[in-house]
Design a protein around this nucleic acid. Structure first.
Length: 338
RNA sequence: GGAGGGGUGCCGGAGUGGUUAAUCGGAGCAGACUGUAAAUCUGCCGCCCUAAGGGCUACGUAGGUUCGAAUCCUACCCCCUCCA
């Protein structure tokens, strides 16, 4: 399997998606999620709070739970904190998430505070509705981009004695500095001996910045999604494999990379696969980006063990040009030319 | 040899007197995607100078009509179809 070869340790699955299709019954009949996906390692499931928020039209939140329409067929459903836990227990995941209410970036403070209170209330109910201790239930910190709310939220959840904590509702369009400030606010009150999970992040530069602020765990669709659209991570930053400059590039995407794509294929070949619309290109690019992230995380773990993380961070950021930075440079170049 | 049809920007293809540097596709150039709408989305795309804006050259070729033509007329060149 690709993921095993890549050194992947844990995978994320999603309650919202699995609930709508194929449905919890189907997975139960097929022996649970591990067997269904043929994944022997740990699985983390998200509660679906975020998907209801980002995918489903017509969502209505009440004290009871959240009502939404399926983005697939428009049918109406209700997720309560109790159901979210039950579904995730049914899937047999190893780490499960509380049902939360993320606030959109830019929402007024009162609204964010209300979402946060609801998230807290639901966190308590999720804890109470667990069937057993076999699975680790994580609480989710909310509070938008308001420092005091973030801190309040983290303090409240810390008092509930979860085996692990997540920071949610970030990376939703807010400026990077603000996001990292919120990470700091959210991490500070959490017990140091429990894992901290930053949900939905992210890009290589974000991972490094967040680890520097005490985050242990991440998940993100970014590396695979951008890979499918031709954006590949390298030690020097993100590159777009579709660019004409790769047409005759003989070496691998990233000479420093040990992934099977880089060890086997030239950048020119990958460029061609993307141009030609070949499905193989999507897979090779995905393998590369995932391996890049895996290696990056392993290097960060090692540097922490060695007590040289700060140096690693400086070195990494000095050579890795973030996407937005290179976009700015490209625009400048384009302007100069036009 | 006869009768029709057609030649538009890198390619395909709209447009049949002014608001057309010219609809729209494709190709090309660049960019974005962060708790899974899998292959999505955005911008640029004749040349030159610029910040807005301006100038130049363009619709097979050469003339003509007109205040004004890719659009009308004449000649020529080339392509396609049918008949012989």
């Amino acid at each position: 399997r690709d993921l095993v070869d890549l050194g992947v340790r844990m995978v994320l699955a999603n309650t919202y998606h699995l609930y709508l299709r194929p449905g919890p019954e189907t997975i139960r009949k097929l022996g649970g999620l591990h067997r269904f996906m043929a994944w022997e390692g740990p699985i983390l499931t998200d509660s679906g709070g975020y998907q209801v928020f980002s995918l489903a039209p017509l969502r209505r939140v009440s004290d009871q739970g959240v009502t939404f329409r399926s983005h697939i067929d428009g049918s109406e459903h209700l997720f309560t904190p109790e159901l979210a836990v039950e579904l995730q227990e049914g899937l047999g995941a190893d780490i499960i998430m509380a049902l939360d209410v993320p606030s959109p970036f830019g929402a007024p403070r009162e609204e964010v505070a209300r979402d946060m209170e609801r998230t807290h209330d639901w966190a308590v109910r999720c804890l109470a509705s667990r069937a057993g201790d076999g699975q680790a239930l994580f609480g989710i910190v909310q509070g938008g981009t308001f420092p005091e709310l973030r801190r309040d939220s983290a303090e409240f959840l810390a008092s509930l004695d979860f085996p692990g904590y997540a920071l949610g509702g970030l990376c939703l369009g807010e400026p990077k500095e603000l996001m990292m400030d919120m990470v700091e606010e959210g991490v500070a009150p959490l017990p140091p001996d429990r894992p901290r999970y930053l949900m939905g992040v992210g890009s290589p530069e974000d991972l490094v910045a967040a680890v520097a602020r005490g985050i242990d765990l991440f998940d993100s669709a970014l590396p695979t999604r951008v890979a499918r659209n031709g954006a590949l991570f390298t030690r020097r930053g993100r590159v777009n494999i579709r660019k004409a400059s790769f047409r005759e590039r003989e070496g691998p995407i990233d000479a420093a990379c040990d992934c099977s794509t880089c060890r086997t294929f030239s950048a020119a070949y990958l460029h061609h696969l993307f141009r030609a619309g070949e499905l193989l290109g999507l897979r090779l690019a995905t393998v590369h980006n995932l391996r890049f992230i895996m290696v990056l995380m392993e290097e960060m773990r090692q540097s922490l063990r060695d007590g040289v993380f700060e140096k690693f961070r400086r070195d990494f950021l000095s050579s890795y040009i973030p996407a937005d930075e290179s976009a700015r440079l490209a625009q400048k170049r384009a302007k100069k030319h036009s």
